[in-house]
């Protein structure tokens, strides 16, 4: 082999290795994990098994080494949406978005967001949603009374329902406020009054599927 061929081989060999890395099927043996009970597919419920889309990567992926920072939203809640809700691409502020269409092309949307802290507290949040559909704010005691409390999957869920107008059209919000690990999650189902009222049962069932994630064995 000539020197220049040597040179080519020398230069290209590691590049070829680089091109093939991370493509191999591998195997290994590990001790069983004690804290990872497997669940049989035949007995596991769908609502016990799903995580949110585009889950935060742990918050530290872009963090500088040696710089301790709190994760963007902590661990994500998990849920399973009803089959007829159409998942939409997430946006910068959203943990999830679902579109629901009704008769005559009516369209409602479920927006799922999460923010650190209590975001002003339940009363402020309820009145913020009321303001979005042209309703006057409620006094503290009345706003608190308007929240129905559920305990699902170790989460304390505050459910509210309100009907007002938006753009002159009758509009309804069914929403849930879920405190979780120092953050507050908002599930706001907003749309035409009739459609959101019709979807209330599905929304309440959906709330039962919300749960904290568990570790993957």
């Amino acid at each position: 082999m000539k020197p220049c061929t040597h040179l080519c081989a020398l230069g290209l060999f590691p590049l070829l290795i680089a091109g093939c890395r991370d493509r191999e099927i591998t195997s290994y043996r590990v001790p069983k994990e004690r804290d990872a009970p497997p669940a049989a597919a035949s007995t596991a419920h769908a609502d016990a098994t799903a995580a949110t889309p585009a889950a935060p990567s742990g918050g530290s992926g872009g963090a500088m080494a040696d710089t301790a920072v709190a994760t963007a939203g902590g661990a994500n809640l998990t849920w399973v949406a009803p089959a007829h809700w159409q998942a939409k691409p997430g946006s910068a502020m959203r943990k999830g978005t679902y579109a629901v269409t009704g008769d005559g092309g009516a369209a409602a949307e479920l927006a799922i967001t999460a923010f650190p802290g209590d975001v002003g507290g339940d009363v402020a949040n309820v009145n913020r949603w009321r303001g979005q559909i042209q309703l006057p704010p409620l006094p503290d005691a009345e706003a608190t009374r308007s929240i129905t409390r559920f305990d699902y999957n170790s989460l304390k869920i505050g459910f509210v329902e309100m009907a007002g107008t938006s753009g002159g059209q009758p509009t309804r919000i069914t929403g849930a406020i879920v405190p979780y690990q120092g953050a507050t999650w908002f599930f706001k189902f907003l749309g035409p009054d009739a459609l959101v009222a019709k979807e209330k049962a599905a929304f309440l069932e959906f709330l039962k599927t919300i749960k904290p994630p568990t570790s993957t064995p």
């Binding site: 419920h45 769908a46 889309p53 585009a54 889950a55 399973v80 089959a83 997430g90």
Partner: peptide, 24 residues
Amino acid sequence: TTGLGERVLAAPQPITYRQDERNL
């Protein structure tokens, strides 16, 4: 045809490139 896929399906979404998110 079997397993959890009998009750759950996956709907494709655009890939996210945000640094604080990961694709599913």
